[in-house]
């Protein structure tokens, strides 16, 4: 479907907006734990964190958002959603990161039921009541006529925009400087989205599985500390 005709590109703008009521604002994507450890103190430290996060967690999210958009557009059996969700599960070894992804997926699904009700969305949620965030984000994009690359782009952007705004809140960084860092990642964001879109139609078992060992460790430690002391963010 040509999104310039349908206007479906706007859907990924809504999904990637920080004001979208999907619950994304309570997650820092490991940034809060990195700040607590003194690994990130200023804008100069933030840049490599975001670049690394994009290439690992962002890439994985982009791949599955694109695959879900492709699946929604071509039409799949309800079972396919469980397979896609399970394959993303197997690529997310950190239980804390799985929970963070599903919490945002649940929030997104709640908003989607009100905004974009459809039989396919109902099927997806019947198979996976707490879907992974990239899967539901991609499905909504695809159902609205958006392309896999639109979904991948939104997922990749969210992988860095949330932690970036968390850095502003936690460290009191200059919002203009932080925005500049995100803007500098534009080409990298486009490359990640393009790679995700390139494999969108593949068998879910064969999709890439980029890992991020440090993010996994930060996520697990964050959950442990969250239970012992006050933290601003859920992840």
């Amino acid at each position: 479907m040509d999104s310039s005709v349908t206007g479906a590109g706007a859907v990924s703008l809504i999904l990637a907006d920080s004001r979208f009521p999907g619950g994304g604002h309570v997650h820092s994507g490991g940034l809060e734990e990195a700040v607590e450890r003194g690994l990130i103190r200023d804008s100069a430290d933030l840049r490599p964190f975001l670049a690394g996060r994009l290439r690992a967690a962002g890439e994985l999210a982009a791949v599955f958002a694109a695959a879900a958009a492709h699946a929604a557009a071509r039409g799949v059996t309800p079972r396919h959603w469980a397979v896609l969700d399970g394959e993303l599960d197997a690529r997310t070894p950190s239980a804390a990161q799985r929970e963070a992804s599903r919490a945002q997926g649940r929030g997104t699904a709640r908003a989607a039921k009100a905004a974009w009700p459809s039989p396919v969305l109902r099927e997806l949620l019947a198979e996976t009541p707490r879907p992974h965030h990239p899967v539901i984000l991609g499905a909504i994009t695809g159902l609205s006529g958006g392309r896999p690359v639109d979904a991948a782009s939104a997922a990749a952007y969210l992988a860095v925009s949330g932690p970036a705004s968390a850095a502003v809140r936690l460290l009191g960084l200059d919002p203009l400087a932080v925005n500049g860092i995100v803007a500098n990642l534009s080409h990298a964001l486009d490359a990640v989205a393009a790679r995700g879109a390139a494999v969108a139609g593949h068998d879910p078992r064969d999709l890439p599985a980029p890992g991020a060992p440090a993010l996994d460790l930060l996520a697990e430690a964050h959950v442990r500390h969250h239970k012992e002391e006050v933290r601003l963010f859920a992840s």
């Binding site: 430290d45 490599p48 964190f49 670049a51 690394g52 996060r53 060992p213 440090a214 993010l215 930060l218």
Partner: peptide, 9 residues
């Protein structure tokens, strides 16, 4: 750059 990122290694 990736190896040095606090999000990667």
């Amino acid at each position: 750059l990736l190896d040095a990122s606090p999000a990667y290694l």
